[in-house]
Amino acid sequence: MQTPSFLPLRPLGKTGLEVTALCVGCAPLGNMPETFAYSVAEETALATIREIFRSPINFLDTAASYGDGESERRIGIVLKELGGVPQGYVIATKADRDLKTNEFTGDQMRRSVERSLTLLGLEQLPLCYLHDPEWIGFEAAMAPGGPVEALRRCQEEGLIQHLGIAGGPIDMMQRFVETDLFSVAISHNRYTLLNQEAGSFWDVCVRHQVAAVNAAPYGSGMLAKGPSNYPRYMYGEASPELIDRAIRLEEICKRYGLPLAAVALQFSLRDSRIASTIVGMSKPERLHETIALAQLSIPDELWSEVEALGPAQR
């Protein structure tokens, strides 16, 4: 696989893995209408996954909780068709609580990892994150016999190659990164044109040599589809303040003849602290649209106008 010049491979922190600046988010492919307000049929998902493995984007992100295993199962179907993970591609998943009972223990982490291996058809997970630890808190996650210890044991046994942390609250995420137990960290919906709360978190990642991955640069859709078409942020109804800022951003982009989605995406891509940016994909066309948005030329004057709007939520 050869990557084009606009999408070069880059090191994923200290893991030794090399990934593209764009990462395909596979949550929508798990068919999660309660989260995204739309469904993705299996054939559409499979067609999208097949297209990913023909694309220059070499990094895929999924989780045990996406469709309660459905995203991983669908990826596994295509991997079986291909005879395994094509050379040069990196698949990351996340170990999750039990979605039915909310059990979030060390034993559940092992069950989650083992199910992910089965659904994906892999013998080892190249990268596995502890997912959404805000459900139990830092202390419980780090307790003896708890989730982190269980995942580290899975890593020692060779079930996981590299361990990451993926969650919401920035103060909690910083505490996990500062343990120096994780190689990669994901923050989602908190570094966009509308919310830059994770800005200081990227600095913490840099100091601890942890690869920073920014998920949901569109804020779960509003910055891609536009505030009028999709007035939602972080998987729920957007506040009037966020909608107003999105409208003003959209007006700036229109004056330059550029889509808001391109500016929202490149806001993340242009930050040197971020190793890769996760964008959710729901159909094959979306993949090609995203690659095109990443290539559009955006003048410095536009970025100056965006900055002149004043700070986003922090």
Rank of each mutant, 00 (worst) to 15 (best):
G88Q: 09
I136F: 08
D68E: 12
S116V: 08
D171A: 15
I57L: 03
Y66D: 08
I91A: 11
Q108I: 03
E114F: 00
V148H: 08
A140W: 03
L99C: 07
D61G: 04
Q108C: 07
R111H: 15
A95I: 00
L119G: 03
A45F: 00
G69D: 07
E157I: 10
E43A: 13
D96S: 13
Q124T: 15
G137C: 09
F59H: 15
I57V: 15
T48E: 03
S112G: 06
A141E: 04
D68Y: 09
G67H: 08
G84L: 05
Q161D: 12
T48I: 05
M109Q: 13
G137E: 11
S112N: 05
K80S: 15
V85Q: 12
G145V: 04
E70P: 05
I160P: 12
R73M: 13
E149Q: 15
I91P: 02
D68Q: 11
I160F: 08
V78M: 11
V148N: 10
D107L: 10
I75M: 14
A143M: 01
E103R: 14
L99G: 05
C128S: 13
L130E: 05
A63Q: 03
E157N: 14
L120N: 12
A140V: 13
R73K: 15
A63W: 01
I75N: 09
A166R: 05
